[in-house]
Every structure is written in structure tokens, then in C-alpha cells.
Nucleic acid binder design. Structure first.
Lengths: 198, 198, 198, 198
DNA sequence: TATGAATGAGTTTTCATTCAT
DNA sequence: GATGAATGAAAACTCATTCAT
């Protein structure tokens, strides 16, 4: 039964997320998956290849989750709604795939990532980039490099999930955070607000 | 001459930042430091101990840099100024100790960290927590868990540094980012701003 | 249908001849034979047993080929003819079963050979030993240990086949070699020949 | 003390000669050399590299031994003397370096041999080729491809050493064999000799 | 009978650590 | 103190063999 492939992928995700790829011996993955160590090599030629597979699956899940039900914005209100939707998706992903998120956080510049993995990393950002561009053209969002804003948003979000993992976050906190991040993104609208910003 | 200790610490920081502690063989650290592999064990009992030393030094440098010239705030204006100062310190640290920052990012829940390292991680946040508390009492800052806000700020900042490392960021971007993050922190002041936030 | 047995034997011979028994994984034999790896174990209990079967078959083919149409010599002329016949048989075997020959060359003292394989190796030499003995008694052949002469002849012949495999040998070369080897075997007949021999 | 390198080379030669490179686990080499398994990798990057080093050393020893005291022939008598000298050298090599010879026999087309090893294999034949060419121009030696004659001679010689290894050969046998091989090489001088050759 | 996925023992290789110099 | 060759335990990986289908 080749759901063994799936079992191994899942197990690898769990242990990689907790201990790093480099710090996880193959037998540990195998034990977690309930298979023999050698079995792993029937599906991937090396631990590195498995790590890439895990990465690609996590990234794909993330991307598909992120874009779910996000409208293409045509009005200012749409942008806010699309943002809200994406944030909700982000939160949902964090709840449903905590390991995938934890794993992805730490693989940004991992030296073992192959071309395909890197390509997927770029693709993953595309929908968010588009949203931000649209928002900027509508004058709703701060005029800064979209890539930059995305890493900042994602960085803040990752910070949240770390806090959540450490302490457990009340649901209200996610809402609050959503508003806070929106403030970070939103174009400055009032004069008196600027007087206090450094 | 025990500046060898320093050379090793520096070398370890560089290679750990680039390749992860687990993925870095001791001989590689030694070569980078220009010493023999065995020499390392005259200063620390194990690679893990060295990694903790590197961590603690990086964390201490970070903390001391962060608090430099930050006034204890007593007025709303002070809060903004203290924030601006801290942000500048953050940016300075990123420029002066890029390896330390890159290293610290990835050690959040590293399993080899000892009690002292963990304690230092907590201490490092103290001044920022205080600043946020003060700002909240003065009504300038958003009323949310300070820890939470800190991880979000730091997360966003880390996002910035990643972008900087990847592409090179124009100095203006750091300013822009500072304002953006401040917006994320600032208490909502106007009614009309809320209408677009989700 | 148990021509699978044959297919496996043939395939094993081919890959063993090219890569050595020890360096050939079972799945490679199976692929070459067009069967599943497990199938092999329905015919032989182990790779070693298969290697012995291959050896024995190759050796048997060799022996039977070698003795084909070789007269029992009663006169000096008979000896030369029998030799010529055997040499022709040897050449024929090299052409018809190049893999078998290549395989046999390298299994002289292979540690996996069982008693039966070793017995067959001895049997294989019997007809040649007899021929040489007869030739010696008739005064046609050099008086030396027959076993010794045989290994020398076979060694020279193997040298030839190696050259043939490497470069491709013109048919005339096999004839020339036949005469050369005969000279090696023939009893010294003339005085003046000895003056140059060391 | 880096005669460890030598100890490992020697040990590897012994066990490779007895069991084939592929069939010899690294720990077996290490045990024979009296070092730890890991030590091997301080001198060569892989077992394959070690095997090449062993091959090259054996081949070099063989070549240098073979050419020792062999005069460049200018008369027919010189050719016979040079041949005799080479044969003596061959026999000496077989006695002094039995493992090297046994090893070399089996590596003819080994797939792990690198470019340098293959080059050395060609070089090794050069002096013999020259001798044969000279002998052919002087009309003393049979007019056949020198390479071919060499493989035949060496094949016959290897046959001898196998017999020697198996049973122990009386010194006289080596002399006898020398004469036999010379007969194989010598140009046909008499008419009546041909009548019996096939 | 045949299959080929799965196994786990055995192989190659790496690397943290020691210790003679 | 410093070195770096040597170690051997542990890692990655291979492959002969088994067994459910």
C-alpha cells in the first residue's frame, strides 16, 4: 500500500519541524512513520530528496490554502476584504498544519533546496503580490515594494504562531493581530497620524 | 594567547549562520577560525557548548545594542521616540552584525540551547516589553499582549533583513518600514480609519 | 513456464561477466532477465547458489565444446590434429559464448564456489590432460606437468580473447596463435633451435 | 606516523587479492592494517580511490621490476637474453609480490579503475612491446601483433603462478616454462617443424 | 507460481572527540 | 597550550531476502 509514501512524508514533516532536517537521523523519520529505515529509499533517493518533497508539499498546501476564496479586488473595500480573507486563511493554515508552517519557517535559505523547491517558494508569493499591487493602485495600501511587505506580514504572522505555540493564543488575539497588520499595510490617510510616527 | 577564543566564537557564528549548527562539522569551524580542531575543546567541552556560547554572545550583543540610548518614556512623544530609537538600533544591529542576526533567527527552539541561553532569550525582550507597557498605559500603543507585539515586530523586522540579504534594500526602505511597523503598534486614533480594517 | 530458469541463468551470466558476482545486485539480474527479483528465489536459495549454477553451466558448456570431435591420439600426427581440433573448439567457444568465457576467467578462486563447482573445474581439464599425456608418451609434446601446460595454454588463450574483446582480432591471428601455442607445447626437435633459447 | 598509509595499502592489497575489491568490506581492510575503519578515509576519499591507489602501486612495482637489467637488444642473441632476463624478473616478481600479481590479474577491466590507473596499465606494457618489436625486426621473433604476444605470454605466466599457488612449483618448472614460452615467441626456423603444426 | 514492496542487517562514510606529540 | 592524526560510534545508504498478494 503506497500510502506509505504519505506516511513517510507526514512523519518527516513532523520530525523535521521539530528538529531540523540536518539534526534528524533517517531512522527517526522511519520510526515515526512506522516503516523500516530502508523503505524510505524506495521512495526517495536520499534524505535530501525527501526533505525537498516535504518542502514542496508543505509549500503547495500553503499556497492553495492561502488563495482559497480570495476575491480579485476592484474597489478599496475589496482589498480589505481580500486581505481579511487571506489572513483568515493564514490563521486556518496555522491551525490545521502547524507542522508545515513550523517547517517552512526554517527552510528559507536551506542549502539543500533544489530548483523546484525554490521555484515553488516564489510561486507561493504570487497571489499576495498581486493583491498588494492592486491595493496600491487603488491607493489603499502603502506604496512599498510588495515583496518587502509580504515578508514583513509573514514575519509578523510567524511571530504570532510562535507565541501561539509557546503559550496558546486566545482567538481574539488573531483578530487583533489582523487589524494591527492591516494598519501596517494601509496607506497613511490622516495628517495628524504622521506627527507621532518617527 | 586566548584571542583564539574570540576567533573561534566569531568563526562559529559565521558558519552556523550560514549552515546551521547541526550541519556544520567542527573541522569547518576550526578552519574558518584558523585553529586546529582540537583547540576548540580547550575552550568548550563540546560543539553544543560552543553553540550555546555563540548564542549567548549574540543575544547579549543584541540586547545591549537594542537598549542603547532609549529613554524611559513618560509622555506619548517619548514612546514614539523610544520606538524610533529602538528601531534604529535594530537596523544598526542588522548592519553591524548580520551573521549574529541570521544566527539568532534560526535558534528559537533549538534543542541544544541550555538554561542560560533560554534565560537570556527572555531577558532580551525585557526592555521592549517595558516600552510597550509604558506606551499602552499612556494610551499610545495598541492594547495587546506585549510579548505578542514584540514577536510580531521582530518577525516583521526579520522579514526585512531577509529581503535585505536577498536583494539589498535602499536606506529609505528601512524608514518606510519603521513607519509601517509603528502603524501596526499604534493605538487606533481615528474613526474613519476603522471603516476599512477588517 | 520454467524457461524462466534459463532466462535467469543467461541474464546472470551476462551481468556477472561484466560486473563480477559480488558487484551485481540481484535486482539487476532480475531486470536483465525480465522477471521479478523474488522469482529468482523460486529457483535458487540464494545469489550464491545462482552464481554456482551459472558457473557449472558455463563450465559444462566449455568442457563439452572442448572435446567435440577430438580423436584419441595414437600417432604423432594424431596429437597435432587433436590439438588443432581442441584449439578450434576453444576459439569457437570464445566466439559463441564470450560471456561464459569472460565469466569463467574470473572465478578461479572465487570463495563462493561450492564443492560441485570445484569438481567440475577439475573434470573440465581431464580431456586436455589426457591428450597431453598421450602426446608426451609419443614424444611429440614437451615433458612437463600436464596441468601446468594446460594452465599456460589456457592462460595464453585467455590473453587472446582479452585482446579480441578489446580490439577485435583478425581471423588469421587465431591461426597464428594456434601455431605459436603449438610451438610452446612441442618437444624440442632441433639442436640449432636450442642455441637461442634461454 | 604516516606509514599508516603504507600499512593500509599493504593490507588492502592482501585482502583485495584474496577476496576481490567488491567483496571486501572496509572494516576488514582496516583490521588487517591494524587501524580503525575511519582512518582509511583520512588517506583516500573512498574505498574505490584506495583500490585505485593499490592498483597503481602494484602496477608501478610490476613495471619497474620487469625492466630491471634488461638490455636494449641489437643482435639476435641480445633478444633471447633480454627475454630471459624479463622472464626471470617476472618470476622474481611472482615470488616477491605474490599478492600484487594475484591482484593485478583480476583487475583487467574493473569498472572502478580511473584514468590514471588505465594509463599505467598501458605504460606497463611498453618495454615488452619494444623488446618484441626489436626481436621481430631482427627476425628472431614471430611476426604477430606485439600486444597480442604480450597478453599471451603474460596469460601463460599467470597460468603458471596459479599452478604455483595451488600446488607449489619446483624451480625447474619455471625454467622449463621459460623455454616453452620462448618457443611460442620464436620465429619458425625449420621447415620440418611446420609439418606437424596445425 | 510470480510478483515487487518491504525489511533490516550490513556496508560505506562522516564527524565529534581524544590524546600523543 | 596547541595540534591534527586517529578513533569509533553513529549516520546515510544498499541490497539479499522474505512474504502478502
Amino acid at each position: 500500500m503506497s500510502d506509505k509514501r504519505t506516511r513517510i512524508l507526514r512523519a518527516a514533516l513532523v520530525v523535521f519541524a521539530e528538529h531540523t532536517v540536518a539534526a534528524t537521523p533517517v531512522p527517526v523519520i522511519a520510526r515515526e512513520a512506522g516503516v523500516a529505515a530502508g523503505t524510505l529509499y524506495r521512495y526517495w533517493p536520499s534524505k535530501e530528496a525527501l526533505a525537498n518533497a516535504v518542502y514542496q508539499e508543505a509549500k503547495a498546501a500553503f499556497t492553495s490554502c492561502l488563495t482559497r476564496g480570495v476575491p480579485a479586488p476592484t474597489t478599496a473595500g475589496d482589498v480589505a476584504e481580500a486581505y481579511g480573507r487571506m489572513w483568515t486563511n493564514l490563521v486556518a493554515f496555522a491551525h490545521e498544519h502547524p507542522d508545515a508552517l513550523a517547517f517552512l519557517e526554517h527552510q528559507q535559505h536551506a542549502s539543500y533546496l533544489d530548483a523546484r523547491s525554490k521555484a515553488m517558494a516564489e510561486e507561493a508569493e504570487a497571489p499576495a503580490v498581486e493583491l498588494i499591487r492592486a491595493g496600491q493602485q487603488l491607493g489603499v495600501l502603502r506604496a512599498a515594494d510588495p515583496q518587502l511587505l509580504i515578508t514583513m506580514i509573514f514575519g509578523a504572522f510567524v511571530g504570532l504562531t510562535k507565541a501561539a505555540r509557546a503559550g496558546g493564543l486566545p482567538p481574539a488575539a488573531w483578530q487583533e493581530a489582523s487589524r494591527a497588520v492591516w494598519s501596517m499595510l494601509a496607506a497613511a490617510e490622516t495628517v495628524h497620524q504622521d506627527k507621532d510616527t518617527p
